[in-house]
Design a binder for these strands. Structure first.
Length: 286
DNA sequence: AAAAGACACAACCGCCTTGGC
DNA sequence: TGCCAAGGCGGTTGTGTCTTT
């Protein structure tokens, strides 16, 4: 037996929403708020699946939706975030105010992925003077996409004493006695070399997390500036908008399941294929 | 002018996660 | 602790519009 459907489909409207349906849904949510999507259609008098109502509201009717073309800045951010996060559209959308995951996903699939494919294929074949073969141009963009289901990492551990970034596999308990893996973060950058002398900071990478990834990506995060992750900065400056004690898990003895070196990340963001391979291979080796 | 193909995007589907009981 | 409902997510499909032939 298969999974039971989310709602009975008999007698429900499908396809494009009408202006009347939009108005009914908007009015209902304004009065009753979001949530309870399954019961909403019946209460609001809509012949729609609850999921459909939720999607319609989140993607098109919400008042804070930003309409219009994706700006070059947004595009740049999407590309960089996709490089970092893969097809985790909701996370990417969470960093682009007013944009929805569906919109970004569509934009990526229809516009950006092709453009990047073309750029990559062009750069490869330009060097050799060859034309870009069709098969290459049409090949799926897969080599630099993080496979999110194979190794889901939703938390990032920052140890201010390392130039290291630790991704924690949600499915595995933190092993406080686990030996650190080979990719030791570089410690000879004028930072403290004692991994246990201060706290590590664990940030949830979810939509509601306080980590301002655009700030990171738009900052010198990828430039290897030592000062960026100094403890002082972590504690005092605006890269983290929350308060450390309240928003972060603090664990003096936490050992990572996975360790990422910022310099690898830097190379990754700069498009170094070899480093991307290391980075991704590491990220998936949970 | 019409048909075919390409493109863009809204909507749907099914699986996964989470929280309440 | 297990079950179930609800919500969330990413992949995919359907369809309207635009462009090319």
């Amino acid at each position: 037996m298969g999974r039971s459907p989310c709602c009975a489909k008999e007698g429900l409207n499908r396809g494009a929403w009408t202006a009347l349906e939009d108005r009914i849904l908007t009015e209902y949510v304004k009065v009753h708020g979001e949530g309870r999507w399954r019961n909403l259609p019946k209460k609001a008098g809509l012949k729609r699946c609850g999921k459909s109502c939720r999607l319609r509201w989140l993607n098109y009717l919400r008042p804070d939706i930003k309409r219009g073309n994706i700006s070059p800045d947004e595009e740049e951010l999407i590309i960089r975030l996709h490089k970092l996060l893969g097809n985790r559209w909701s996370l990417i959308a969470g960093r682009l105010p007013g944009r929805t995951d569906n919109e970004i996903k569509n934009y990526w699939n229809t516009t950006l992925s092709k453009r990047i494919q073309d750029q990559e294929a062009g750069s490869i074949f330009k060097a050799s003077g060859e034309d870009v073969p069709k098969s290459k141009a049409a090949s799926p963009l897969s080599h630099n996409v993080v496979r999110t289901k194979a190794a889901k990492c939703t938390k990032v551990l920052i140890n201010p004493h390392y130039k290291g970034l630790f991704l924690l596999d949600d499915h595995k308990p933190v092993d406080h006695h686990h030996q650190q893996v080979d990719h030791q973060p570089n410690t000879d950058h004028g930072l403290s070399s004692s991994p246990s002398s201060s706290s590590n900071f664990l940030f949830d990478f979810g939509i509601n997390s306080e980590l301002r990834l655009p700030n990171l990506l738009g900052s010198d995060f990828a430039s290897g500036d030592d000062h960026l992750f100094s403890e002082e900065l972590l504690l005092q400056q605006q890269y983290w908008s929350g308060n450390v004690a309240g928003d972060c898990v603090v664990d003096d003895h936490l050992q990572p399941n996975m360790v990422l070196n910022f310099q690898s990340l830097n190379s990754f963001l700069d498009g170094d294929d070899a480093d991307q391979g290391d980075w991704l291979g590491l990220a998936e080796s949970s």
